[in-house]
Design a protein around this nucleic acid. Structure first.
Lengths: 366, 366
DNA sequence: CTGTTAGCGCTTTCAT
DNA sequence: ATGAAAGCGCTAACAG
């Protein structure tokens, strides 16, 4: 008894031809309908029939074939310094959501130091790319990325927290990370308003009476941290009697601890507040404070950046600048889409807020 | 002046035909040589010529075309509960390294709760897959994954810390997560030796004189946490005078804090040690201890699982079970490769070690 | 040893 | 309003 059920198709994946056959039309019609461009070219009745046949068979287009035909892969690459931080997890989540809405795929490349991965992102990458999004990358890593792409400069690139905004009418001085003018139309930047965040930190601290404040800056040569340093100096300069200090710190708990110890035990009067470039450094700073027999925030106030879950895991909970990483990713993907459509316009940086918790308190009197 | 430089090819990506032309051979020969299967079919001289032409032009094969032709994509999907934890960052790093060695791609799917992502991993996935690796997934999520794949049961699946090992000759009792026999040959498991980890924790604590020990177990129905609970009970049962307790905890700092408060303020004598299913819960537990005016480890010892960077960010640093997440990923990818090659054999679980730090101390006397 | 050929599944003119 | 046919870049039979 040869059974030829039509709706329970076993065997391999159905193709658009199978759908066509099932709907009694041609492959071209199927493509039109399923591609959403059948308005006024295919009768509503046949369109419906095609769609029914498609769902019936559980048809899913073969991406490889489509990509081959179209030349474009509708895929972007997200380059991050390390996957290990929840910050980048959030950036990814934001970006991938927007990508999905527009039928784009997003593949991850955890950059340089990521253990065991190929040095060149494009070697490790499957197929071709329509663009790349780079988040919080160091200046040289970024250069390397652009350079290493075969046919380089043409690839649309959006940088997240990685470069100053491309000022439309700004002549003269150019920051080291600023994209070369030639690449202007294939490059976009999306940033958190880090300067404002730092200003809020300094305002909060000076408002509490702190004057001797030391900045524990991440020892990484990238825009995202340079802004913090510069704004810290500028903000402190506006406060009478302010005594700013600064200590470079490795981007880790241990790094923060070491830097904080240096800051706290150096010559001159001891700072009453430590402003850290990141929550991890802040965690180290808190440890250092206690190792010296001092207390947070009684003797020394400590602040961070990011507002990772680490911030509330610490005790006391960390006062920190909350960066909407997910939004950053989402805006980044949107910017890339705009770039691809040739319609990108720079937007203002993403606003950030200061989450005031228990690691900051009024400066100890004398 | 029409210039026709051959070695500085501008314009679009070179194809294998371009390489063929440049090397003065046919496309087929190029494919053979670059595919590495020319032994005894192409003369070494021509092979060399082809390779030179290829590098010369900066040729990179078009993956879409290759995939279309081969039907297979050499791509695996890694499903993780959330990208936000560095644990999964490490799993990914380990897996992607092995994948790259074998010319495989690895795409990430941060599962269910991940904001804004499609519910079905295969909808969000570009192109076809050769297999999937699922890490530390809850039982139902795992079921859903298998079910949702079009043509389901056939897809090779390796589960990391997600199910008991497939005991070759084990009849009778089957755990709820155990793969159905039908799927046996397309399913593999790779696990940390979590039971041993828990045994080490209990041994360490009872060695320090603790008897009233409460387990703060993650409130998630998955194998990885069930093993911890069961082993905790079993281990405690072997210790005379031991008074085991247990409290479910949400997998977060807040969850740990709440659970610990319940454990510490409940009726009966207060536990002197809290065994947590994960470092995050442990962080919350430490906070709870202090909120009650007690100290870690003076009054209450606390232990975790994972050994994330959080463990040393805390103060005092956390005694915790170190799980080699990166190895887990690597072994997982290898297992998938073996499955694909039809030559998988179950291996013993990955050994874990107890990192003894400052959050555990001898039990307070009386 | 090397070249010719066919075809993977899809989109897109161009006819009808 | 629909169908026929070509071709994206690659690999694998099959000839020579």
């Amino acid at each position: 008894m040869p059974s030829t059920h039509r709706d329970v198709a076993p065997g391999p994946r159905p193709t658009s031809r199978d759908v066509a056959r099932a709907a009694g039309v041609s492959q071209a019609t199927v493509s039109l309908v399923l591609g959403g461009k059948w308005q006024g070219r295919v009768s509503p009745r046949t369109a419906a029939a095609v769609r029914e046949a498609a769902t019936d068979l559980g048809y899913r287009p073969n991406l490889a074939a489509r990509d081959l035909r179209l030349g474009s892969t509708r895929t972007a690459l997200l380059v991050v310094p390390a996957l290990t931080s929840e910050f980048f997890g959030n950036v990814y989540a934001g970006a991938v959501a927007v990508a999905a809405e527009h039928g784009f795929g997003l593949v991850l490349y955890p950059s340089p130091q990521g253990v065991g991965t190929a040095r060149n992102p494009f070697e490790s990458t499957r197929g071709a790319l329509d663009g790349v999004i780079a988040s919080s990358m160091a200046a040289d890593a970024l250069r390397e990325i652009r350079g290493s792409f075969p046919g380089g400069q043409a690839l649309p690139l959006v940088m997240l927290d990685s470069a100053p905004p491309t000022a439309p009418g700004d002549p003269g001085h150019r920051e080291p990370d600023a994209p070369a003018p030639a690449a202007r139309d294939t490059t976009a930047t999306v940033n958190h308003d880090l300067a404002d965040g730092m200003r809020q930190v300094v305002g909060h601290l000076t408002g509490l009476g702190h004057r001797r404040i030391t900045h524990l800056g991440a020892a990484i040569d990238s825009w995202t941290f340079r802004v913090r340093s510069r704004t810290f100096r500028e903000s402190m300069a506006t406060v009478p009697d302010a005594v700013p200090g600064s200590e470079p710190a490795d981007l880790s708990v241990g790094g923060g601890q070491t830097a904080a110890r240096r800051a706290l035990t150096g010559p001159g009067p001891r700072p009453t507040a430590l402003v850290c470039d990141d929550d991890t450094i802040a965690a180290g700073a808190c440890k250092a404070v206690r190792r010296l027999g001092l207390s947070v925030p009684g003797d020394v106030s400590v602040t961070g950046f990011d507002d990772l879950s680490l911030a509330t895991a610490l005790d006391p909970e960390l006062t920190t600048v909350r960066l909407p990483a997910q939004q950053l990713g989402a805006h980044g993907m949107r910017a890339l889409l705009d770039l691809l459509a040739g319609s990108f316009t720079e937007r203002p940086p993403l606003p950030v807020t200061l989450a005031v918790r228990d690691s900051t308190a009024p400066a100890p009197r004398r």
